[in-house]
Design a protein around this nucleic acid. Structure first.
Lengths: 233, 233
DNA sequence: CAGTGGTCTAGACCACACA
DNA sequence: GTGTGGTCTAGACCACTGC
């Protein structure tokens, strides 16, 4: 008896992945049911279930009740991208973090804003422009808009001391958010703030956040030149 | 008896999340053990376990054997970012995909390449430059390097017909990869290929892939102006 | 309607990490 | 050592969904 008496869900996962990779189960294949596999692998159905559930989460296979489990035709790779707080990101790199409030204005939402995050036209918003430095070198400029109607408390906060991002995360953690990245060219004003050259390329992030389906805030961040967003799988 | 006779792991998850959000369990709190919670919620330990495991995966709590489970102080948000094949991405947007091979050369790996992906100096690599069009408009330029030692089969392929990315995914799906994004300025040659203006900002992606710890390929992709990478949570 | 995955349970043993 | 999470099991019922 070779008896590896415990068949773990990892074992099962690896076995299944192996058969998919070596084309024993090519894309589109309907694979055996959980009970069948459980007896093949000599383990409980729950074990097979966990293995397959994770593979499904990873987008390797597609599971449907009654229809069974199939190998996904076009395995889409995906990565987990961290969206850390600026301060954390800087401090973790070993640099000294410094924050500065550039401007704070209370205005009626411009039309592009209300359209973008779904506010009533002319709704009141607080606009905060802030700078974040790493070892006193410009790291990120943030242009943030917060709905005062959906978050009145924001009016009482002294944002010269707390960065909006951190305050929001602590006081009103969003339940849903959209994030997007693009490359932009810096204009004269941004160039001054970021110590960059006009026309230089900068990575920018747009971030819209909701709490319980109520639009809360929109932020556009501009990163210093050469900033690189990275991850792996 | 109100008896919702089944307490699901989702119920437990929501309860726990609720207590964290309403500050009943502030950041840093050591929460009760699984057995304790199971009896509190009136369910099996496995149910609590699954709930807490998922919360841990989401970065909300931190679990350690013997030490117990704590609410994470700085909840790091993360998003799932899809890394689709170019062709899929274009076709899914409803546009017509067209592919062209720009150049194919067999060379000794330049030093920056061997250093970057961990090849022996001067190892032979196949360099493929390709263009990808959406409705005949330039969408992406790809500069790819493949190790011929670790993947000899690549020499036999007619890359004027198959795009390297797709061939690799089908024939040698990587087991590990690094991805990074940055903003770059397009030079004269790139501007021609992409129908862009010299100096314009473009999003670029660097992608390094390994199979079983063997460095396989490195690719640098340059996206058309205005390209936006997006996701949500 | 019947088959498949989805989930819960109760009990058990294991592995790690702190004291 | 000892407590906490990590996992497996065997059995059960449920819920969705394709036929």
């Amino acid at each position: 008896m070779s008896q590896a008496h415990k068949v773990t869900y990892r074992d099962v996962k690896d076995q299944i992945l192996g058969r998919i990779c070596d084309k024993s189960w090519p894309a589109g294949t309907l694979l055996p049911g959980e009970v069948e596999l459980a007896s093949q692998f000599g383990c409980a159905r729950a074990t097979v279930n966990r293995a397959m559930r994770e593979l499904a989460e990873e987008g390797i296979i597609d599971r449907k009740r009654k229809a069974g489990t199939r190998v996904v035709n076009a395995p889409r790779r995906h990565i987990k991208l961290e969206i850390p707080l600026v301060s954390q990101e800087i401090e973790q790199s070993g640099a000294v973090y410094r924050y500065a409030l550039v401007s704070r204005t209370l205005v009626a939402a411009p039309s592009w804003l209300s359209a973008r995050i779904g506010l009533e036209p002319e709704a009141e918003v607080l606009n905060l422009q802030t700078m974040h430095y790493a070892n006193n070198a410009p790291f990120q400029f943030e242009d943030r808009w917060i709905s005062t109607k959906n978050l009145p408390a924001v009016l009482e906060v002294d944002f010269s001391k707390v960065c909006p991002e951190e305050w929001l995360q602590a006081e009103a953690p969003c339940t849903q958010a959209d994030v997007s990245f693009t490359a932009a060219t810096v204009d004269v004003r941004m160039a001054r703030f970021m110590s960059m050259v006009v026309g230089e390329a900068a990575l920018t992030t747009d971030l819209t956040a909701w709490v319980d389906n109520q639009p809360l805030t929109f932020a556009q961040k501009t990163f210093a030149g050469g900033y690189r967003l990275s991850s792996n799988f």
